[in-house]
Each structure stands twice: as C-alpha cells, then as structure tokens.
Amino acid sequence: MLVDGIRAHRWWLVGAGIGLIALSLAPLFLMPFHVRVVQQILFSAGLAVAWTILGGFAGYWSFGNTAFIGLGAFAAGLLETNIAIDSPTLAFVLATLFGCAVCAAVAALLAYPILRLRGIYFAIAMLGVSQVLGELTNNIDAFKGSLGIILPKLAPAAMEPQVFYYYLFLVAAAGTLLVGFLVKVGRIGYGLLAIREDEDTARMLGVPTERYKIGMFVVSATLTGLLGIIYAHSLGYITSGSVYRTDFSLNMIVYSLLGGIGTLAGPILGSFLMVVLTQVVLGRLLDIHMFITGALLVAMVMLAPRGLLGFAENLVRRRGAGLRTVEP
C-alpha cells in the first residue's frame, strides 16, 4: 500500500526533491535578510505540517500546539545548560533527543484522555494544556521560565549563524514533510481521513481509531518539539514568553487553512504567503499584524473555506477537468 501510494505520488516527490536542492543552494545567493525570511518560512511551514498530521488529516484541531514548542525548548535547554559535556555539538544533539523524547512522553500520557474529547472540546483542552505548561514554566523557579535560559552558540566560526540555523530548519522541515507524506499516502492516511469524516463509522469498518489518533498526536508533538528546540537555539535565549506563544498555535491553523486544510502543499503555501506578506510586504507595519491575521482568518472562512488549493481546484473543475480525489 505504502509503495503504491509513493508510486502514485512520485511526481510530488520529484518536485519536493527539486525544491529541497534549490533551498539548499539558496543561501549562496540570498541576502542575509532574505535568508532570515526563508528561515522563518521553513519554521512556520514545518509547524503547520506537523499540526496538519493530526489536525488536518484526522480533524482533531489543536489550539495549543505551542505547548510542545515550549516543552521541547525548555527540556532541551535545561539539559544542555546542566550537562557536563565538553563538545557543544554533542550536548546539543543529546539535548535535542531529550527534548523530543519529553514531548513524545508528555503527548503519550495526555493522548488517551484528551483525544476522547472531540471538536471544540479537544481544541480548547489543548489551549488549556499549553497555558498550564506556560504558566508553570513561568512561575516555578526550577524551570527558569521568567528568568530565561541562555543557550550555547552552535554555529561554527566559519558560518554565519543565520545560515547555520537556516540549514537546521531546512532539515527539520524537510523531515517533517517526509513524515507527513508517508503518513498521508499510506494506509494510515486513509484511516485518518475516515476518522475525520466519521469516527464511529471508521471504527465500525475496522479502523483502529484510538491507536491512530494517539500515534499521530505523539508524532505531531515530537516534530513540533524538534522545531521548537531549533527555534530556541536560533534565538539564543529563551523565556516562557518567547516559546509558549499562543500566536504560534494560531498561526499553524491559519496557515493550513489559508493553503488548504488536510493537504501537505496547503500549509507550505500558506506559510510562504503569510510570512512574505507580514515580513516583507508589511514589514514596517508591525502594529497591525494581528489585525491582518484576524481579517485573513475571517475572509478565508467566509470566502474559501477549503483554502487556496481548494479554491483553485474548484476553478479547474469548473472548466471541465476531472476530479482528483486525494491530493497530497
């Protein structure tokens, strides 16, 4: 099944490969500001794809995925600054593994009770989880959430830091996309689709709904944590306020919605458009970013509830082209 799915989508893989090569070469030609913009796109797209693995595919919309950005960042940061290893690279690798493991463990513990909630109740419960973690990190001294953690500098001397982090984000985002792709085109992807459409009927058809939901929650949390850890290092200094950010949780949803919910190309397209819009086009108008995000959210729900990809598909179909049933 997985092999068939991969074969059926081989042109997507080729496209993604070309994109990856282009992105690997891009820092050689881009100005520092643009490197940072693309880095921001990679981070956002990675988060949105990680969110999509549960939210877009299975219809369980988390309003609090930033919980795992914060959890991963703080778990890794605390280990890294307390571990007695001379090599910063090795310390970073260990801390990253630890941070991801903490995210996976917390998600696995939370998964069974919280995934019994459906629709808005799951969404709000996740928002609550992210707030609890954020508040606790901020107010319990051992976590250093209000004081902050200074993270070691990792970039080799020969390399600009933004270029170094650019490549870390590229690897993480590409890995996330690959995981999302394998989930989507395989048997699990259809099972998640069935859960999204009608969970009780899915179970009646033999879909192991609990196992799939819990599994994807853990995968999504771990990937989100990984991106959070890299983000934290790119900042160099974290407080609970800089990683437990509700706007991160929101942006994942808005970007996915903008591009097309339930697809993989959608979150990437959405992240690209939004980051370019807010960082480049409206870079000087920081005051109204929130207004624009809100207005866009309203406009998308009202005008193109299936996102830009869905909108484009409708246009194509109206011109008489055939219907593709599942686009990646």
């Binding site: 969404a123 929101l250 929130m290 207004f291 995000t293 809100g294 207005a295 309203v298 729900v301 009202m302």
Partner: peptide
Amino acid sequence: AVDRSSLLASMLVTFGVALMLRNLLVL
C-alpha cells in the same frame, strides 16, 4: 459563517474578530 460551513468555522471567525478588535483596542 454557520450557514456556509460549520460550527467550527464560526469559532474561527470569532477568533479572527477577537484578534482584529484586540489590535484596534491596542491602537
């Protein structure tokens, strides 16, 4: 929003409006 799609959509719309109004209050 409710007519067009779903109750979840209405939640997103109210979220969007909250962001816009909050931004206006700040301004």
